[in-house]
Design a protein around this nucleic acid. Structure first.
Length: 727
DNA sequence: CGTGGGCGGATTTTT
DNA sequence: TCCGCCCACG
């Protein structure tokens, strides 16, 4: 047997991990060290040399993208279909199990999945039913409470010991939410995992079956597992299984949503015989970038320890730009990107990374005015759009009449004369009878419903008849029929604005998505499609082919790489974020986030910060991020010479600590590029005296500038006449 | 029933 | 500043 494709391309450490004897293995894989490669090659190795059947391999990831990539790579390596092996996200695998064993899991066969938005709606409904004030009981907080406990494996009945009235109420809401979901036959994301865990925990024969089957369990991004995910893995693996987990404690950035880095430590305790492999050779970045990243992360405590190195070139130094404000910061970045493409680089090779989405705006404005195409990641995805969710709600309600969330969503969409009053009546009847909205509506006497009775009967008739009509149709025709017969298409066509047109297009796109959908398993395609829509909300819909500057948050950037990277907004209070400044654990997570960002860069890495930043309508004068101070000065090259700050900002920062003020004053922004005025340029005017350029509009002789004069305050001046002297 | 104005809040996000 | 949500009005 020829093993060269599996082993040849590996370095020593990677090969050791891939060929480790079957048994527990923990791979500490640094950024860019070939983590996915090790995972996929391990699977190929098991199948080819250990005679492991693909049937007995289970591999879990966190994102659909990672799962898809792994599957593609394995098929490429083995040159066979990998359909026999279970490879998917935690949620996807849990869903698969629950579909197979819905009865044992205590679910209805047609159960549907709630996404985060649906979940919030259900919570709001529960609050309303309890007549609780949403200002006192913030739906998002209730949602957080519920998910947090589910992520830790706790049911309401485990939470009897409330410390105070607030917690007692929360527990009550949690229980009521659960009842609601059970009645409607829906489960949320956290519930998928918890149910899958309880399924195995409470069904010993089932667990035995799966233990015997999945002799090889592999976990990607292990540092991101939460308590229930790890407990689930542990159940499956038992005490004598062979888990192969890959992770990096330095890239743990999801503690805030339940991820437990400690699982790495726990794994070593739970499997003391586990083989530990470290992947430290990096194939992505230059030595300069790696040294800076190593220096930064060494400030964290309690690391498992790992130092990235490369056999590659030292490369350019990491650069730092102190911008005057966020506009100057954006201009600087755009100018560098223009230079990059003038030298033959592709735009899509560059990425602007930031801490929070709000930061994208100034970059977008600068990119638009420079006519540079860009793509912002994050935001609404295809299956999350309102009109798509409306259409899906029809399909869900047809599949399962008891789905209250879907019922509420479409019962009066398009408007058919079933108003809020009627809905209240139905809700009340449902509450009294302990039934769902659908059955309450069905059994409500006409007298109770008044003039809404007829439209309501018509609606239920519509749902029933849609169910009959689409039963024999292929999937895409089912979708097509429903969006038309429900009146959704006509409803949006009536909206003459652009958005109406866009929504119709999206609905038609949904039909195409259904046409191209490849159902797996033998469940009805529609049910499959509906689950797919929730679990894979539609990343990759975007046009990857276009050559665009890539813009995203640092969190989104994890796992990606770019030749040219800008880490923007390196200011205390923004990054690290204000809410993480006072807590060591959170601060360390921010530092890891910075480390993740830095290690995205292959060739060129820029840090930028703004001395003045307008946020939520007010000017902030933050000191440069403490992370910048943590980088060895020898590795950093400041882009501009240092000159004193102008008066106005000087005053504004006087409230800061001494070192922060010093750091700010040392930074500069005074410059005239190519003879043109720049933001932050210090100027002198014959009458008004000295000031700083705050704003520039127009070009050439028509240009106007806004100058903040130290004595006279801010004024707009025509550049042509003002006779400004650049200082 | 749909929209416009007033109000409050404003990390990070996948599934 | 800006966006989303709620309520009041047409």
């Amino acid at each position: 047997m020829d093993l060269s494709p599996i082993l040849n391309s590996l370095n020593e450490a990677q090969r050791e991990a891939v060929t480790a004897p079957v048994g527990p293995v923990l791979v500490l894989a640094g950024a860019g060290s070939g983590k996915t490669r090790v995972l996929t090659h391990r699977i190929a190795w098991l199948i080819q040399t250990e005679n492991v059947s693909p049937h007995s391999v289970l591999a879990v990831t966190f994102t659909n993208k990672a799962a898809a990539e792994m599957r593609a790579r394995i098929e490429h390596l083995l040159r066979v279909s990998s359909s026999a092996l279970w490879l998917g996200t935690f949620h996807g695998i849990a869903h698969r199990l629950l579909r197979l064993h819905w009865r044992e899991a205590g679910l209805v066969q047609s159960f549907q999945i709630l996404d985060a938005e649906d979940q919030l709606r259900v919570i709001k409904k529960v609050l309303k039913a309890q007549e609780l004030d949403e200002n006192r009981w913030v739906p998002r907080e209730v949602q957080y409470f519920i998910n947090k406990h589910k992520d830790e494996g706790r049911r309401p009945q485990h939470l009897k010991h409330a410390v105070d009235g607030t917690e007692a109420q929360m527990i009550k809401l949690y229980a009521q939410y659960e009842e609601n979901c059970a009645r409607s036959g829906v489960i949320d994301f956290a519930e998928l995992l918890l149910r899958a865990y309880e399924l195995w925990r409470d069904q010993p024969e089932l667990l035995r079956h799966y233990r015997a089957r999945f002799r090889h369990v592999l976990v990607d991004e292990f540092q991101d597992t939460n308590a229930i995910q790890y407990a689930w893995i542990r159940l499956l693996v038992g005490s004598d299984g062979a888990p192969f987990v890959v992770g990096d404690d330095d890239q743990s950035i999801y503690r805030w949503r339940g991820a437990r880095v400690e699982n790495l430590h726990k794994f070593r305790e739970d499997f003391p015989q586990a083989k530990l492999c470290r992947l430290e050779q990096n194939y992505r970045s230059t030595a300069s970038i790696l040294e800076a990243a190593n220096a930064l992360i060494s400030n964290n405590s309690g690391r498992l320890g790992k130092t990235l190195w490369t056999s590659g070139a030292r490369g350019e130094p990491v650069r730092l730009y102190a911008a005057f404000n966020e506009r100057d910061e954006a201009d600087f970045v755009v100018t560098r990107i223009l230079e990059w493409s003038q030298r033959g680089g592709l735009r899509r090779e560059s990425a602007i990374l930031y801490r929070s989405n709000a930061q994208s705006r100034s970059f977008e404005e600068a990119l638009i005015s420079a006519r540079v195409p860009y793509r912002v990641y994050g935001g609404l995805r295809f299956f999350e759009r309102a009109e798509i969710k409306d259409a899906l709600a029809y399909l869900r309600l047809i599949t399962n009449h008891e789905d209250d969330a879907s019922f509420e969503r479409v019962v009066n969409l398009p408007a058919r004369g079933i108003g809020a009053r009627t809905l209240d009546t139905i809700r009340e009847a449902a509450r009294a009878a302990g039934s769902t909205l659908w059955s309450a509506a069905q059994s409500a006497p006409d007298a109770l419903l008044g003039r809404s009775a007829a439209p309501l009967r018509a609606f239920q008739q519509l749902i029933e008849s849609l169910g009959v009509a689409i039963a024999p149709l292929p999937l895409h025709e089912q979708v097509d029929h429903v969006i038309n017969a429900s009146g959704l298409i006509a409803y949006h066509q009536k909206d003459k604005a652009d958005r109406g047109e866009a929504r119709v297009e999206n609905l038609l796109e949904l039909v195409s998505a259904a046409r191209g959908f490849d159902p797996e398993g033998d469940a009805p395609p529609l049910q499959n499609f509906l689950a797919h829509a929730v679990l894979e909300s539609g990343e990759g819909q975007g046009t990857d082919s276009d050559d665009c500057v890539q813009m995203m948050t640092l969190h989104t950037a994890k796992g990606l790489e770019f030749p040219l990277v800008f880490l923007a907004g390196l200011e205390d209070g923004l990054f690290p974020h204000q809410r993480s400044l006072n807590d060591l654990e959170s601060l360390e997570e921010e530092r890891r986030l910075c480390y993740v960002g830095m290690t995205r860069a292959m060739r060129t890495l820029y840090f930028t910060y703004a001395e003045q930043r307008r946020l939520h309508g007010v000017d902030n004068y933050n000191s440069p991020s403490r992370f910048i101070q943590e980088l060895p000065p020898a590795l950093i090259e400041e882009v501009r010479p240092r000159i004193r700050l102008p008066h106005a900002a000087d005053v504004a920062i006087s409230g800061l600590g001494a070192s922060a003020s010093r750091a700010l004053r040392q930074s500069s922004f005074s410059e005239v590029l190519g003879g043109s005025m720049r933001l932050g340029t210090r100027v002198r005017h014959g009458k008004f005296g000295e000031g700083t350029v705050l704003n520039i509009e127009g070009q050439g002789p028509q240009a106007r500038v806004q100058v903040n004069f130290e004595q006279q305050g801010s004024k707009w001046l025509m550049l042509q006449y003002a006779n400004l002297e650049v200082m």
